[in-house]
Amino acid sequence: MAQNPNLAALSAAGVSVWLDDLSRDRLRSGNLQELIDTHSVVGVTTNPSIFQAALSNGNAYDAQVSELAERGADVDATIRTVTTDDVREACDVLRPQWEASDGVDGRVSIEVDPRLAHETDKTILQAIELWKIVDRPNLLIKIPATEAGVPAIASVLAEGISVNVTLIFSVERYRLVMDAYLQGLEKAKEAGHDISKIHSVASFFVSRVDTEIDKRLEKIGSDDALALRGQAGVANARLAYAAYEEVFLGGDRFRALADAGARVQRPLWASTGVKNPDYSDTLYVTELVAPNTVNTMPEKTMDAVADHGVVTGDTITGTAGAAQAVFDKLDAIGIDLRDVFLLLENEGVEKFEKSWQELLDATQDQLDAAAK
């Protein structure tokens, strides 16, 4: 089967195309394999909201949940079994992409329980547990970049475990994430791990930044404020890429690790589904093209890129000055960026906790029904 030319062009420009979705139906129907064959997909990301939607729709999980109910499994064990089974199967589907890319792609992510987002030690323990349960070298453990998450990231990497750092909104926090990655690699190297096998991506959330800042700009309501709508998300990601270049392409600390086989921690653009219908539905893909990046897309966004996305090559390198100018204007007009990023982080954790609770409740109902 031929690859879609627009997504193939994105891949050729250095962007790894990952699907931001997973379900048993997608696995068993062959849809994931089809997207690999036709849409240049080389990775999959999941989160609590994705699993909540997957388990709540249809009956693909009914037989397994009934079997677990008969065994006396509680709701947490049931969800852990069901989700890790899906992720393990997805890892196996993507194994050829992992091998072909020397471990860079072919990756599948699973997130620690979002209720642990503010608990460092419990996050570390669950990350290690999930790594052992899935037992696939192309797994990534997702850990949020909360204040408690950052030290957990370093500790989990030090164990030789590959990590997808999620819920990053500010460049300031991203710098702490990159530092945690380097610290984790240094400790892993000291412990005798082969650091060439440790991979990481740093997931920068894009569309949510525009959604929140646009709301504040509209409240200000001046022409200057309204003219800045839809610019912050892309500018923020471009500034993040400049920070990535500084640390990984020009930094002495990483160079010492690279000599021992270390890989760069790639920036990943997440939350790339466009929420404002006034904006191009491919905005957070075509405007964020650069080497050594990942774009994880919901299928709707991927289909839009496949249909009419215009990929013109690198649209990030060299844009840091213009991106900073956008932020300077936002600051001058009265947008409190620090407050925006703190709010978005807290909301992100709350949304995932809510989805997880809905998943717990729905699964408990299934277990109760199966036990009757």
Rank of each mutant, 00 (worst) to 15 (best):
228 L>Q: 05
156 V>W: 00
298 P>A: 13
53 A>H: 12
165 V>F: 06
81 T>I: 07
140 L>V: 03
255 R>F: 05
265 Q>E: 12
242 A>V: 06
216 R>E: 13
63 A>S: 15
329 K>R: 15
59 N>P: 04
165 V>M: 07
301 T>S: 12
269 W>F: 13
44 V>I: 15
135 D>Y: 12
239 L>Y: 05
239 L>K: 11
221 G>R: 07
111 E>G: 03
361 D>W: 10
22 L>Q: 05
64 Q>D: 15
135 D>T: 11
192 G>S: 08
94 L>E: 05
316 I>T: 04
141 I>C: 05
60 A>H: 12
190 E>R: 14
161 I>W: 02
67 E>D: 14
359 L>K: 02
222 S>N: 12
135 D>L: 12
50 I>A: 02
217 L>Q: 09
22 L>T: 03
162 S>L: 04
163 V>W: 03
207 S>W: 09
276 N>Q: 09
301 T>C: 07
117 A>M: 08
227 A>N: 09
191 A>G: 09
48 P>I: 05
212 E>V: 00
265 Q>W: 06
308 H>R: 13
249 L>D: 11
335 I>P: 00
42 V>H: 07
104 V>R: 13
145 A>V: 03
211 T>Y: 10
133 I>G: 06
308 H>A: 11
97 Q>V: 08
273 G>S: 15
64 Q>N: 13
80 R>F: 10
316 I>M: 15
158 A>V: 06
39 H>I: 02
34 E>V: 07
178 M>G: 05
